[in-house]
Write a protein that binds this DNA or RNA. Structure first.
Length: 201
DNA sequence: TGTCCGATTGGT
DNA sequence: CCAATCGGACAG
C-alpha cells in the first residue's frame, strides 16, 4: 500500500503552496469489508485565515465549528452548509494558525459502484465534481470533522507531482462577501480534467 | 430565543 | 434564475 502523506506535508506554512500540491493526490475513505472509496484530487481552494475574509476563521473567529481549523496541519475540517451539504477540508500549518484547503472535486478511482449507489441517477462524471457531491459519494460527513489524516478514518496518499504546466488557477467560488479577497487566485485545478466542478473556469 | 445567511446543488 | 433546507453565528 502507498504511504499516507506525512505530517510534514501539511504543516508547511504556505497554504497556497500546499493547495496546489494537493492536486493529483488520492483522497481515501475506508468502506465495508476492507474495501476503499477513493478519488484523485483535481480541484482545490486555499483559505488563509485569519487575514482572509473568505475563511471561516477570518478575524480570529474561534467557535465550536471553526475550532477544527485551529488544529495541527493534517486534520480534517468537515463543515455543513446550506442545510444539506458537507464540505471536506484539509487543515494546514501549525496549531493555532487556522489555514485550510477545501477539496472541490475529485476523479473517482476506487469504489465507483458504491459512489453510484450513493448518488443514484447521476452520470459518472457527475459523481464527485463538486465539494458537496464528493462528500456524498465518498461518504464524508461531520463525523469525520477533526479526524487525524494520519489515522484510519480518512487520509491522503501520495501520487506523482503534477508539473505546473498542467495546473490552472483562478478566483475562488461562492465567496462574494469576501471584499478584496474575492479576486485572490487561490482556486487550483487540473487543466482539461473532466471532473473539475462546473461553472466558470 | 429570533433572525439572517451560507466555501452548493439541481431543477426551471 | 431560484428554491431547498437547517445549523451556525450573533444580536438582544
Amino acid at each position: 500500500m502507498i504511504d499516507k502523506l506525512p505530517r510534514e506535508f501539511y504543516t508547511r506554512l504556505n497554504v497556497v503552496s500546499v493547495a496546489r500540491e494537493l492536486l493529483g493526490k488520492l483522497l481515501v475513505v475506508p468502506a465495508r469489508n476492507r474495501t476503499r472509496v477513493s478519488g484523485k484530487i483535481v480541484e482545490v481552494e486555499a483559505y488563509r485565515g485569519p487575514q482572509d475574509r473568505a475563511a471561516h476563521s477570518y478575524g480570529g473567529r474561534r467557535t465550536k465549528r471553526t475550532e477544527t481549523m485551529y488544529g495541527l496541519g493534517g486534520t480534517a475540517y468537515v463543515f455543513f452548509v446550506y442545510g444539506m451539504y458537507n464540505q471536506f477540508n484539509v487543515v494546514t500549518n501549525d496549531r493555532d494558525s487556522p489555514h485550510a484547503v477545501l477539496i472541490r472535486a475529485v476523479e473517482p478511482v476506487e469504489g465507483i459502484d458504491l459512489m453510484r449507489q450513493r448518488r443514484p441517477g447521476k452520470s459518472d462524471h457527475n459523481l464527485t465534481n463538486g465539494p458537496g457531491k464528493l462528500c456524498i459519494a465518498l461518504g464524508i460527513d461531520r463525523k469525520l470533522d477533526a479526524a487525524d489524516l494520519l489515522g484510519n478514518k480518512v487520509w491522503l496518499e501520495d501520487a506523482e507531482q503534477l508539473p505546473r504546466s498542467r495546473i490552472l488557477s483562478g478566483p475562488r467560488i461562492g465567496i462574494d462577501y469576501a471584499e478584496e479577497w474575492i479576486d485572490k487566485p487561490w482556486r487550483f485545478w487540473i487543466k482539461n480534467n473532466p471532473y473539475v466542478s462546473r461553472r466558470k473556469q
